[in-house]
Write a protein that binds this DNA or RNA. Sequence first.
DNA 1: TCAGAGGTAATTTTT
DNA 2: TTACCTCTGA
Length: 740
Amino acid sequence: MNSSFLSGLNPEQLRAVTLPRESALVLAGAGSGKTRVLTTRIVHLIQSGETSPGAILAVTFTNKAAKEMLMRICAMLPINTRGMWVGTFHGLCNRLLRAHHREARLPQLFQILDSQDQFAAIKRLLKTLNVDDEKFPPRELQYFINANKEEGRRPKDAEAYDDYSRRMVELYKAYEEQCQREGVVDFAELLLRSYELLLNDEVLREHYRERFKFVLVDEFQDTNRLQYRWLKLLAGNGGTIFAVGDDDQSIYAFRGAHVGNMQDFQRDFAVKHLIKLEQNYRSHGNILDAANALIRNNRGRLGKELWTDAGAGEPIRLYAAPSDNDEAAFIVEEVKALRNDGWRLSDMALLYRSNAQSRVLEHALFSSSIPYRVYGGLRFFERMEVKHCLAYLRLAANPDDDGAFLRVVNFPPRGLGARSVEQLQEAAEKAGVSLMQAASAHNPLSARAAASLQNFVQIIERLKQSAAGVNLPELVEEALELSQLRTHYQTEKEGADRVENLNEIVNAATAFMQEEEDSALVAFLTHASLEAGEHEAGEGADALQLMTVHSAKGLEFSAVFLSGLEEGLFPHENSAAEAEGLEEERRLMYVAITRARKRLYASYAGSRMLHGQLRYGLPSRFLEEIPPQLCKVIQPELQAYAAPVRSTKVGGTGWRANEPRYGYSTRYEAATKADAQVPQAMRAKIEYPFKIGQNVSHSKFGAGVVMSFEGVGPDARVMVNFKQAGTKLLALEYAKLQAV
DNA sequence: TCAGAGGTAATTTTT
DNA sequence: TTACCTCTGA
């Protein structure tokens, strides 16, 4: 038997790959080759003759992971992989529901609402029901509905213990009815509906259970309760699940992920083999030791320790910045130095806990002309103009989609005012029909509005006819033309990017048609909802990668800058209340650290502009959890302070420091205080002559109390709350404060 | 219909 | 501070 694909696996990997047909849990540490194990196991199952592709179902969370998996399987397997189900939970559920739409009580061409669409649908619902959205904020209702669905609860099962929650349940029910009426399905509904389909239809259930002898799950720690129940139902009695995950990388509890599924799984499936993949192929030893030491502070772990034979590598570089601007300046200098040493910008990442932190960093990078790319934000199919175009297409596929109807009935503006639309909505509701039906039938509008409406109806009619005849890109092109969307944005001042995006939809349709067997309109719309397009912007260029720690999960970089390591920011203050929250923050820090291959920087800022106010921060407790002997503290080259610091008075309310303009470089690296506690070593740079809370007096302002400090050396400033003059930020060097 | 004012909240995110 | 939303007046 040719099993060359097994060579090069370490003993644990090999054991996982060649495990007999039984349920197993693979605890796969960061960078331990889990995707390799997953794909190689699939290949092995087929190559060894154990089973055929049709018996395999592999499920992931992201489309990216699913694609990657399929690609790697195809590279190893000469035979075709048709019949194998590899996809995301939502993708597979969609497949199931399309195939059995009648049993699932759905129209064949049901449309999928993304979160944005769902939010809009909920807002619309509240409006039609005349619900006070101050009392029942749409965001909360959306959360309520999704949380219930993810626990498998329909309105009849949802808990109601007071007037408020009773009303929420009613609204949940009304929302469901609205979706059903309009033939649309939200993300959570995909899961729940297909779960119920399998639960209630014994024939179908047995069919799929019989078929999928091997179920494999990636990122198992991210599954929510419903996803786990779905898996259990599918694997059935005698089915096997091969689950791969890492409890230490569970960072999505806030969106319903339930790590407890890992323990439940071991129990429910009588898992005999818990295989730990602890050998790491990504990072140097010091980085792994830091991660191990940090995560040891969490309780209730399944337990795992990463190791490498790559050697200790460089120390972790720590930097205490006086301010957020200084932190950014420091990072800029380091990035420049690394680039000069031949590192690729795209192989370096700048990570932060929350998106708001990117602003200062971007500003500094921009000023230094360092190319960078920020991850996150709107993705292609989420853009307004793209949504508009899709709404026309959706109506062509499903005229009952009131959400799509309202989005574009008067966009681009065709002289149909809000009043007319309201009248139409009333008429539709009275007649119990969709807006499109109401619009096509008699409507009680003024002649002018009626004409506009007919114009709109005709556009959709013509698109509907074309949908049957022309191919997908042609249809998109026609939608852009007929709707006059393109012309609309062409005449707009800032519309160039939007026009470009509109044209890009045609390209996306072309690509879709070439890739997919099923190039029907609905398949394309499903693709748009389920994949939303990778956030691709300037892929090719060599640019520094900026992203939140969350979005860095699964990625790796030779150098990683971890910024904003302050109490309240990371760990975030909102998480500090419960132990659970703090542990999740720590796992997040663990994820952050383990992104780095060779070099890791960790920095914090003593002061930072947050919500329009200067805030003073202490170094994150997570810094204290990293053994100091793994670290090296970097200090700015103090001689580089050329001019004395100048402070400028701003608007009479306070003082703002000038931008720091001294330089840093690792070549200036100073003290390595391996024996000292790291944060102390970091704090040592900012020791001040007064204590916080101490009473002081000033020649001009009189008596006051020391509130806080910021800055080092000549840059040091002190904030004092004066009895008479109020709060002032003063340069320590010149303030001449006297202790009282 | 649209621009501008004013109010408010401000982790993390994939599908 | 800023981004986003809703409301209002022309």
